[in-house]
Amino acid sequence: MNIQIENLSKQYGYQKAVDHISFEVRPGEVLGFLGPNGAGKSTTMKMITGYLSIGEGDVRLGGKSVREYGDDLKRHIGYLPENNPLYLDMPVIDYLEFCAALQGVHSSDIGKRVREMVRVCGLNAEKHKKIGELSKGYRQRVGLAQAMIHDPEVLVLDEPTTGLDPNQIVEIRKLIRELGKEKTVVLSTHILPEVEATCDRILIINKGKIVADGSAESLRKQATGQEIIKLRIEDASPDAIMQELRRLQNIDTVELVDKTMNRFEVQSASGKSSRREIFQLCVQKGWVLSELIPIETRLEDIFRNLTTN
């Protein structure tokens, strides 16, 4: 079941929370939804899951409009809301059974599904406690378990790994990747390495508009017009090397980073690579090129570039 978002908008008073965004997510794809606070991520997710009414435009799940078939479509969605609201006075098992029943799981399968979720989400030790007695990490697992209890085709997860310890984060990411092979997954997060670890595609949204859409790699390519390389060249004085480097055609700027170690940072002219030239220069002069490290633009920088200004 794919998700198609067409020209979706939502307005609160004078403020446009979501401003004509369109995108599509296919089964077998994990989409990472990024954006600063208040960018419209949660609002979009709430409209997909049918909690908020759609302002303008449309959301289609498997070709069916949420406007018309909203209540039927909810059965196919697993949703983990922001802040993970739970009935704190309910025991874990009762809560999961309640959710399964509401989602239309057949009464003979409820026990099996609940056991499965307890196993997958690692809740076995805590399953008889009330949810209010659980730590934040375990509550998060309960939230994930309730979202997946009916084996939905579409998963919408609003910040799924907040409050988890690093081991749990690794597990949950693995689980999401696993689920993403067959299902359509949309997740939002503030943790950028998480997006790289779990998502096939990244969507960055700012002030209600989509500012970037693509894989982590293609975003990098877009963002870095210029190649940046760290160099260490031995057997000559830094000044002589600087001079020679500056003469190379494809090099834009050269900076001496570390005098004693002969380390340089080189920025190539936009769209060009200077690696071969540097190598040949060293061969020609008989210098030893002991380090050549291409610097990848960090996702954080791309994110900051796109969402400030």
């Binding site: 899951t49 809301p81 609201p85 739970l86």
Partner: peptide, 14 residues
């Protein structure tokens, strides 16, 4: 108040 209404209303119920 607790926000569970969002969880409840996004289940397959009207």
């Amino acid at each position: 108040k607790t926000g569970t209404i969002e969880m409840l209303l996004t289940k397959a119920v009207s």
